[in-house]
Structure formats: C-alpha cells, structure tokens
Amino acid sequence: MINKVQLEKQNRTRSLLFLFSASFLLLVIGFLCSVKWGQAQISWRVLYEALTYQGHDKNHLYIQTLRLPRTLTAGIVGIQLALAGLLTQLTTKNPLASPHVFGINAGAAIAVVFGLVVIKNVSLTGSVYLGFIGAALGALLVWTLAGTGSKQYVRLALAGITIHFLLSSLTEGLIILNQQTTDSMMFWLVGSVSQAAWKEISTILPFFIGGLLVFGLMLPSFRLLLLDDEVAAGLGQRVLVIRAISVLLVIVLAGSAVAICGPIGFICLIVPHIARALVGNQLHVLAPLTALLGGTLLVYADFFSRFIAFPYDSPVGIVTAAIGAPFFIYLARKKGGAR
C-alpha cells in the first residue's frame, strides 16, 4: 500500500515536471518566433547577435528597441492578467469571473482614457495610477450593486457585466469626443502591445515584481478561498481580510496591465481554466502554471496578430477575443448544465 502511494506521488511529480517543462519550452519557442518574424526579415545569426548585443546596425536595433520589448511586455502582461483572473475566480467563487467580465478592466480603461483626453499630458506612470483608481472604482461599484446574501455570486456576475458595458460605452464616447487621438486610442482600447517599448517595461516592472512577491507570500492564505467562508472562519482565519488583499492584488495586476496595453479580453478567464484542467485545484501548482500559460498565450496571440492584416499590425485583443469568446460560451453552457 505504501509503495503504491509512493509510486503515485512519483508519477504525479514526473507528470508535473513534464508539464512545466513543456509549457516553458512553448514559451521559449513563442519568444523566439516573436522576435524573429514580422515585417522585417531577420536571419538567425542577426537575431543571435541582437539578443546578445553584439551588433548595432539597423536590424539589430530593430530587434533590440521594437521586437524584444514588445515580446517581453506581452509575456509580463499575460502573466499579470492570468493571475488576476485566477484570484478573481477564487475570491468570488465564480468560474466565469474575471477582471474583464467584472468591470475592473473597463474601470481602469475609462480612467486612463479620461486622463489622456481631459487632463492631458499624463505620464505613463500617471496612467498606471489612474488605472488603479479606475479599477478600484469599477470593483467597488460592482460589489456595491451585488450586495450581500446567498445569491451574491450570481448578482456579482450580472452587475459586473452591466458595469463593464456601461463603462466601455462611456470610454468610447470619450474617445469619439477627442477626434485627434481617436485612431490610436481605439487601437489601444481593443488591446495591443505593438507600441510597447523599454519605457513601458520599466514602468510596469515594479508592479509586476511586487505583485508576484505578494502573491507568493499570500499563497497559503489564498488556499482558504477554496473553502466555504464558514469553514475558513471556523479555522480562525480572517476571510474578509484575505479577500480584501486578493481584490487589491487584482486591482494592481489588472490595472497596471490595462494602463500599458489596454483591456485585453479573455486572458483572465480562459487561462486559469486551462491550468485547472491540467493540474486540478492545488493552488501551489495551479498558480505558477497559470502564470506560465498566461505569458505563453499572450506572446503567441501577439505573434499571430501580426499576420491578420500583414504587413500592418492588428490589436492582440482580436486574437484573444476569437479564442476566448467561444471558450466563454462553452463554460457558460457547461456550468449551466451542471446546475
């Protein structure tokens, strides 16, 4: 019996090691594809010289100043959005929850657009802080409308979708009123990393590193979100405090990502479900796999978005929406059938 249990643990360890190795390999392949292929033809030799900073001609600078920061931004933002989606689903106990569906991304978007259109001359860091404020107000508005009670999680979904469409409409109205920047803002509003540079990476990196550190430190406490509130409270844990920290972390991760790349849809929703289908609900394994798959998915989505209207760039949100919308319908039908 003991040998059987040990054998099962060894098999699971090997399976997890293979899964993480394969996911990391996919990320590396996606990274190389993203920095090599695009509008300009780049050889493997030039790519190696550019990545190791051994050359400084036009092609080397093209990779170092455009493709490399764009790919790194896609990976960072993908990780942030995937973890924000996982936390949202844990906090609300709703498998269809995500910052995008619950109005957090829309709140961050309208705050950033308001700053660019009304306040003007807002720095990139200022846009990130505006994104935090908008995300917090969007989340507060949704939770206020949902109220409390036995049906709170159902009302959260309905209120979130309503607020999302309301804030998205107001955002588009602000953009239309400002004709001078309509094209660039509409491109950003769909979700895009095509304009990302080293400045964007240096701006978002502190929030990315800080968010990952807080997530890692709070991981044992976040496991309690998998339990019923009564059970967790019976264990002597402050469920409301843990949930509040979780919401604040979602605001930081999603708000900073939206401020940099716009409200990229469905990454928050689909990646946690893919990771959960592969490894189950063990949070110490689920969280790192979710982060890894989130970065991988957005890197590939950005890569394929370049060829939709080649040689012109297309917003990465087009690809994520094309993947995520059918997945959302499948989840809604599956959960509805289960009930």
Rank of each mutant, 00 (worst) to 15 (best):
220 P>W: 04
221 S>F: 09
222 F>M: 12
224 L>P: 00
226 L>P: 00
226 L>S: 14
226 L>G: 13
227 L>G: 03
229 D>Y: 04
230 E>K: 12
232 A>Q: 08
233 A>T: 15
234 G>H: 05
234 G>F: 06
236 G>E: 02
236 G>C: 03
237 Q>K: 14
237 Q>H: 13
238 R>W: 01
238 R>E: 15
238 R>V: 00
239 V>P: 07
239 V>C: 02
240 L>S: 15
242 I>A: 07
242 I>G: 04
245 I>F: 14
246 S>H: 01
246 S>A: 15
247 V>W: 14
248 L>N: 02
248 L>Q: 00
249 L>G: 01
249 L>T: 01
250 V>D: 02
250 V>P: 05
251 I>W: 02
252 V>R: 01
252 V>H: 01
253 L>R: 03
253 L>A: 08
254 A>Q: 03
255 G>D: 05
255 G>Y: 06
255 G>L: 07
257 A>Y: 09
257 A>I: 08
258 V>S: 08
259 A>Y: 13
259 A>W: 12
259 A>F: 12
260 I>P: 05
260 I>T: 09
261 C>N: 13
261 C>F: 06
262 G>T: 07
262 G>Q: 06
262 G>V: 05
262 G>N: 07
263 P>S: 13
263 P>Q: 10
265 G>S: 15
266 F>G: 09
266 F>Y: 14
267 I>W: 06
268 C>T: 13
268 C>D: 13
269 L>K: 07
269 L>V: 09
270 I>K: 00
271 V>G: 10
271 V>N: 10
272 P>Q: 13
274 I>Q: 06
275 A>N: 03
275 A>K: 06
275 A>R: 05
276 R>Q: 15
277 A>G: 15
277 A>K: 14
279 V>W: 06
280 G>M: 11
280 G>W: 10
281 N>R: 05
282 Q>C: 01
282 Q>H: 14
283 L>F: 12
283 L>H: 11
283 L>Y: 08
284 H>K: 09
285 V>I: 15
285 V>S: 13
286 L>Y: 12
286 L>M: 10
288 P>R: 07
288 P>W: 04
289 L>A: 08
289 L>M: 10
289 L>E: 10
290 T>P: 06
290 T>W: 08
291 A>N: 09
291 A>E: 03
292 L>K: 02
292 L>F: 06
293 L>P: 04
294 G>D: 12
296 T>W: 11
301 A>Q: 03
301 A>Y: 05
302 D>R: 03
302 D>M: 04
303 F>Q: 01
304 F>I: 15
304 F>Y: 14
305 S>P: 09
305 S>A: 15
305 S>D: 09
307 F>M: 10
307 F>Y: 15
307 F>K: 10
307 F>P: 11
310 F>Y: 15
311 P>A: 04
311 P>K: 04
311 P>E: 05
311 P>M: 08
312 Y>A: 12
313 D>P: 02
313 D>W: 01
316 V>A: 02
316 V>I: 14
316 V>S: 02
